[in-house]
Amino acid sequence: MTNPERGRSLLRFASPQHFYPLAGRLAPWFAAIAVVLTVIGLWLGFFVAPTDATQGQVYRVIFIHVPAAWMSMFIYLVMAFWSAVGLVMNTRLSFVMSQALAPTGAMFCFVALWTGALWGKPTWGAYWVWDARLTSQLLLLFLYFGFIALTRAIEDPRRADRAGAIIALVGAVNVPIIYFSVQWWNTLHQGASVSLDKAPSMATTMLAGMLVMAFASWAYTLAVVFWRVRPMILERERHTEWVGAELERQARISQAAGGRA
Protein backbone atom coordinates (compact mmCIF):
# COMPACT_ATOMS: atom_id res chain seq x y z
CA MET A 1 0.00 0.00 0.00
CA THR A 2 2.41 2.68 1.14
CA ASN A 3 5.34 3.46 -1.05
CA PRO A 4 8.13 4.82 1.14
CA GLU A 5 10.54 5.13 -1.79
CA ARG A 6 8.19 7.57 -3.45
CA GLY A 7 8.70 9.77 -0.45
CA ARG A 8 7.08 13.13 -0.55
CA SER A 9 6.44 13.30 -4.29
CA LEU A 10 3.02 14.26 -5.49
CA LEU A 11 2.59 10.77 -6.91
CA ARG A 12 1.96 9.36 -3.47
CA PHE A 13 -1.49 10.90 -3.65
CA ALA A 14 -2.18 8.31 -6.33
CA SER A 15 -2.48 5.81 -3.49
CA PRO A 16 -5.97 5.68 -1.97
CA GLN A 17 -4.60 5.81 1.55
CA HIS A 18 -2.99 9.19 0.95
CA PHE A 19 -5.68 10.56 -1.28
CA TYR A 20 -8.46 9.83 1.21
CA PRO A 21 -7.41 12.42 3.84
CA LEU A 22 -6.33 14.88 1.14
CA ALA A 23 -9.80 14.73 -0.45
CA GLY A 24 -11.36 15.21 2.95
CA ARG A 25 -9.25 18.26 3.61
CA LEU A 26 -9.72 19.87 0.19
CA ALA A 27 -13.47 19.31 -0.27
CA PRO A 28 -14.71 21.93 2.25
CA TRP A 29 -12.42 24.55 0.74
CA PHE A 30 -13.75 23.97 -2.73
CA ALA A 31 -17.28 23.95 -1.38
CA ALA A 32 -16.63 27.32 0.25
CA ILE A 33 -15.14 28.69 -2.97
CA ALA A 34 -18.20 27.41 -4.84
CA VAL A 35 -20.60 29.16 -2.44
CA VAL A 36 -18.71 32.46 -2.58
CA LEU A 37 -18.41 32.40 -6.36
CA THR A 38 -22.08 31.46 -6.76
CA VAL A 39 -23.12 34.43 -4.64
CA ILE A 40 -20.86 36.78 -6.63
CA GLY A 41 -21.96 35.26 -9.94
CA LEU A 42 -25.66 35.50 -9.16
CA TRP A 43 -25.22 39.06 -7.89
CA LEU A 44 -23.44 39.99 -11.14
CA GLY A 45 -26.05 38.14 -13.16
CA PHE A 46 -29.15 39.51 -11.50
CA PHE A 47 -28.19 42.96 -10.24
CA VAL A 48 -25.29 44.23 -12.33
CA ALA A 49 -25.80 42.80 -15.79
CA PRO A 50 -28.19 44.94 -17.85
CA THR A 51 -31.46 43.77 -19.38
CA ASP A 52 -30.97 42.22 -22.78
CA ALA A 53 -32.29 44.41 -25.57
CA THR A 54 -33.98 41.63 -27.54
CA GLN A 55 -34.72 38.92 -24.97
CA GLY A 56 -35.65 40.97 -21.93
CA GLN A 57 -35.08 39.35 -18.55
CA VAL A 58 -35.36 35.73 -19.65
CA TYR A 59 -31.79 35.71 -20.81
CA ARG A 60 -30.74 35.65 -17.14
CA VAL A 61 -31.12 31.87 -17.36
CA ILE A 62 -27.80 32.00 -19.19
CA PHE A 63 -25.89 32.27 -15.92
CA ILE A 64 -26.84 28.73 -14.97
CA HIS A 65 -27.44 27.29 -18.45
CA VAL A 66 -24.10 27.95 -20.10
CA PRO A 67 -21.89 26.96 -17.14
CA ALA A 68 -23.91 23.74 -16.75
CA ALA A 69 -23.50 22.92 -20.43
CA TRP A 70 -19.78 23.63 -20.29
CA MET A 71 -19.33 21.55 -17.15
CA SER A 72 -21.27 18.59 -18.55
CA MET A 73 -18.94 18.41 -21.56
CA PHE A 74 -15.82 19.13 -19.55
CA ILE A 75 -16.65 16.47 -16.95
CA TYR A 76 -17.08 13.85 -19.67
CA LEU A 77 -13.64 14.69 -21.02
CA VAL A 78 -12.11 14.49 -17.54
CA MET A 79 -13.88 11.15 -17.04
CA ALA A 80 -12.38 9.84 -20.27
CA PHE A 81 -8.99 11.20 -19.21
CA TRP A 82 -9.04 9.36 -15.88
CA SER A 83 -10.29 6.24 -17.63
CA ALA A 84 -7.35 6.35 -20.03
CA VAL A 85 -4.94 6.95 -17.15
CA GLY A 86 -6.46 4.01 -15.30
CA LEU A 87 -6.18 1.66 -18.25
CA VAL A 88 -2.61 2.68 -19.08
CA MET A 89 -1.10 3.08 -15.61
CA ASN A 90 -3.36 0.57 -13.87
CA THR A 91 -4.14 2.94 -11.01
CA ARG A 92 -7.33 2.06 -9.16
CA LEU A 93 -7.85 5.59 -7.95
CA SER A 94 -8.26 6.87 -11.53
CA PHE A 95 -11.24 4.59 -12.09
CA VAL A 96 -12.77 5.69 -8.81
CA MET A 97 -12.36 9.31 -9.88
CA SER A 98 -14.06 8.77 -13.22
CA GLN A 99 -16.97 6.97 -11.56
CA ALA A 100 -17.31 9.69 -8.94
CA LEU A 101 -17.49 12.31 -11.69
CA ALA A 102 -20.27 10.66 -13.69
CA PRO A 103 -23.35 11.49 -11.53
CA THR A 104 -22.35 15.15 -11.27
CA GLY A 105 -21.72 15.31 -15.00
CA ALA A 106 -25.12 13.79 -15.69
CA MET A 107 -26.72 16.27 -13.30
CA PHE A 108 -25.13 19.25 -15.06
CA CYS A 109 -26.17 17.76 -18.39
CA PHE A 110 -29.77 17.53 -17.22
CA VAL A 111 -29.64 21.05 -15.78
CA ALA A 112 -28.37 22.34 -19.14
CA LEU A 113 -31.25 20.61 -20.95
CA TRP A 114 -33.89 21.75 -18.47
CA THR A 115 -32.76 25.38 -18.39
CA GLY A 116 -32.36 25.31 -22.17
CA ALA A 117 -35.98 24.19 -22.51
CA LEU A 118 -37.24 26.89 -20.13
CA TRP A 119 -35.18 29.48 -21.94
CA GLY A 120 -36.30 28.29 -25.35
CA LYS A 121 -40.04 28.54 -24.69
CA PRO A 122 -40.27 32.34 -24.32
CA THR A 123 -37.41 33.00 -26.74
CA TRP A 124 -38.13 30.68 -29.67
CA GLY A 125 -41.67 29.66 -28.80
CA ALA A 126 -40.97 26.00 -28.06
CA TYR A 127 -39.60 24.04 -25.13
CA TRP A 128 -37.65 21.83 -27.41
CA VAL A 129 -36.24 22.32 -30.88
CA TRP A 130 -34.07 19.74 -32.58
CA ASP A 131 -31.19 22.12 -32.64
CA ALA A 132 -27.69 20.70 -32.99
CA ARG A 133 -26.58 21.86 -29.56
CA LEU A 134 -29.68 20.66 -27.71
CA THR A 135 -29.63 17.33 -29.52
CA SER A 136 -25.99 16.60 -28.84
CA GLN A 137 -26.52 17.61 -25.22
CA LEU A 138 -29.31 15.04 -25.03
CA LEU A 139 -27.09 12.37 -26.53
CA LEU A 140 -24.37 13.29 -24.02
CA LEU A 141 -26.89 12.65 -21.25
CA PHE A 142 -27.52 9.18 -22.72
CA LEU A 143 -23.77 8.56 -22.78
CA TYR A 144 -23.64 9.46 -19.08
CA PHE A 145 -26.55 7.13 -18.35
CA GLY A 146 -24.84 4.33 -20.25
CA PHE A 147 -21.62 4.76 -18.29
CA ILE A 148 -23.40 4.90 -14.94
CA ALA A 149 -25.65 1.95 -15.76
CA LEU A 150 -22.74 -0.19 -16.94
CA THR A 151 -20.51 0.49 -13.94
CA ARG A 152 -23.44 -0.16 -11.57
CA ALA A 153 -24.52 -3.35 -13.33
CA ILE A 154 -21.17 -5.11 -12.93
CA GLU A 155 -20.59 -6.46 -9.45
CA ASP A 156 -16.89 -7.23 -9.70
CA PRO A 157 -15.25 -3.81 -9.16
CA ARG A 158 -12.20 -4.71 -11.25
CA ARG A 159 -14.36 -5.50 -14.25
CA ALA A 160 -16.68 -2.55 -13.60
CA ASP A 161 -13.70 -0.17 -13.54
CA ARG A 162 -12.27 -1.34 -16.81
CA ALA A 163 -15.54 -1.80 -18.66
CA GLY A 164 -16.58 1.70 -17.63
CA ALA A 165 -13.24 3.06 -18.77
CA ILE A 166 -13.66 1.48 -22.20
CA ILE A 167 -17.16 2.86 -22.71
CA ALA A 168 -16.04 6.30 -21.49
CA LEU A 169 -13.24 6.31 -24.05
CA VAL A 170 -15.49 5.02 -26.85
CA GLY A 171 -17.98 7.74 -25.94
CA ALA A 172 -15.30 10.44 -25.89
CA VAL A 173 -14.14 9.44 -29.37
CA ASN A 174 -17.75 9.60 -30.51
CA VAL A 175 -18.71 12.92 -28.94
CA PRO A 176 -17.15 15.06 -31.71
CA ILE A 177 -18.55 12.73 -34.37
CA ILE A 178 -22.01 12.97 -32.82
CA TYR A 179 -21.78 16.74 -32.61
CA PHE A 180 -20.62 17.06 -36.21
CA SER A 181 -23.26 14.69 -37.55
CA VAL A 182 -26.06 16.34 -35.60
CA GLN A 183 -24.98 19.74 -36.87
CA TRP A 184 -24.94 18.45 -40.44
CA TRP A 185 -28.38 16.88 -39.99
CA ASN A 186 -29.70 20.05 -38.38
CA THR A 187 -28.65 22.37 -41.22
CA LEU A 188 -30.35 20.05 -43.69
CA HIS A 189 -33.63 19.78 -41.83
CA GLN A 190 -34.17 23.10 -40.17
CA GLY A 191 -32.39 25.54 -42.39
CA ALA A 192 -32.33 28.99 -40.92
CA SER A 193 -35.87 28.87 -39.50
CA VAL A 194 -34.67 28.42 -35.95
CA SER A 195 -31.24 29.79 -35.46
CA LEU A 196 -29.76 29.75 -32.01
CA ASP A 197 -26.57 31.29 -33.32
CA LYS A 198 -27.82 34.83 -33.19
CA ALA A 199 -26.31 35.19 -29.76
CA PRO A 200 -27.00 38.58 -28.30
CA SER A 201 -23.91 40.70 -28.24
CA MET A 202 -22.87 40.29 -24.69
CA ALA A 203 -22.17 43.04 -22.25
CA THR A 204 -18.98 42.60 -20.28
CA THR A 205 -20.90 42.18 -17.05
CA MET A 206 -22.96 39.36 -18.57
CA LEU A 207 -19.81 37.57 -19.63
CA ALA A 208 -18.24 38.15 -16.22
CA GLY A 209 -21.29 36.71 -14.46
CA MET A 210 -21.21 33.67 -16.70
CA LEU A 211 -17.50 33.05 -16.14
CA VAL A 212 -17.81 33.43 -12.37
CA MET A 213 -20.68 30.93 -12.37
CA ALA A 214 -18.58 28.57 -14.51
CA PHE A 215 -15.78 28.71 -11.94
CA ALA A 216 -18.35 28.18 -9.20
CA SER A 217 -19.63 25.00 -10.84
CA TRP A 218 -16.06 23.86 -11.35
CA ALA A 219 -15.31 24.28 -7.64
CA TYR A 220 -18.63 22.61 -6.76
CA THR A 221 -17.73 19.63 -8.95
CA LEU A 222 -14.37 19.23 -7.25
CA ALA A 223 -15.92 19.39 -3.79
CA VAL A 224 -18.65 16.90 -4.63
CA VAL A 225 -16.26 14.50 -6.33
CA PHE A 226 -13.89 14.53 -3.37
CA TRP A 227 -16.80 13.83 -1.05
CA ARG A 228 -18.05 11.03 -3.28
CA VAL A 229 -14.63 9.47 -3.69
CA ARG A 230 -14.12 9.03 0.05
CA PRO A 231 -16.79 6.38 0.79
CA MET A 232 -15.88 4.65 -2.48
CA ILE A 233 -12.28 4.37 -1.30
CA LEU A 234 -13.38 3.08 2.11
CA GLU A 235 -15.48 0.40 0.48
CA ARG A 236 -12.73 -0.75 -1.83
CA GLU A 237 -9.96 -0.65 0.76
CA ARG A 238 -12.05 -2.22 3.51
CA HIS A 239 -9.55 -5.04 4.00
CA THR A 240 -6.73 -2.71 5.02
CA GLU A 241 -5.71 -1.64 8.49
CA TRP A 242 -5.95 2.08 7.85
CA VAL A 243 -9.61 1.83 6.79
CA GLY A 244 -10.27 -0.07 10.00
CA ALA A 245 -8.69 2.73 12.02
CA GLU A 246 -10.60 5.36 10.04
CA LEU A 247 -13.90 3.54 10.60
CA GLU A 248 -13.31 3.36 14.34
CA ARG A 249 -12.48 7.07 14.33
CA GLN A 250 -15.70 7.87 12.46
CA ALA A 251 -17.66 5.71 14.88
CA ARG A 252 -16.19 7.59 17.86
CA ILE A 253 -17.03 10.94 16.24
CA SER A 254 -20.63 10.00 15.59
CA GLN A 255 -20.95 8.54 19.08
CA ALA A 256 -19.65 11.74 20.62
CA ALA A 257 -22.01 13.78 18.46
CA GLY A 258 -24.91 11.49 19.41
CA GLY A 259 -24.02 11.77 23.09
CA ARG A 260 -24.07 15.52 23.01
CA ALA A 261 -27.31 15.79 21.10
Binding site: L139, L150, I167, N174, I177, S181
Partner: peptide, 27 residues
Amino acid sequence: ALTLGLRGGGMLLALLVLPLFVPVLIF
Protein backbone atom coordinates in the same frame (compact mmCIF):
# COMPACT_ATOMS: atom_id res chain seq x y z
CA ALA B 1 -18.37 -7.50 -25.27
CA LEU B 2 -18.75 -5.13 -22.32
CA THR B 3 -22.16 -6.45 -21.28
CA LEU B 4 -21.21 -10.11 -21.69
CA GLY B 5 -22.92 -12.29 -19.10
CA LEU B 6 -24.56 -9.42 -17.21
CA ARG B 7 -28.09 -9.59 -15.86
CA GLY B 8 -30.33 -7.35 -17.95
CA GLY B 9 -27.53 -7.11 -20.47
CA GLY B 10 -29.90 -6.56 -23.37
CA MET B 11 -31.33 -3.26 -22.16
CA LEU B 12 -27.92 -2.13 -21.00
CA LEU B 13 -26.48 -2.92 -24.42
CA ALA B 14 -29.17 -0.78 -26.06
CA LEU B 15 -28.47 2.10 -23.68
CA LEU B 16 -24.75 1.88 -24.39
CA VAL B 17 -24.76 1.65 -28.16
CA LEU B 18 -27.86 3.52 -29.34
CA PRO B 19 -26.34 7.00 -28.79
CA LEU B 20 -23.29 5.84 -30.73
CA PHE B 21 -25.52 4.68 -33.59
CA VAL B 22 -26.97 8.16 -34.12
CA PRO B 23 -24.33 9.48 -36.56
CA VAL B 24 -24.69 6.35 -38.71
CA LEU B 25 -28.45 6.79 -38.74
CA ILE B 26 -28.12 10.45 -39.70
CA PHE B 27 -25.79 9.84 -42.62
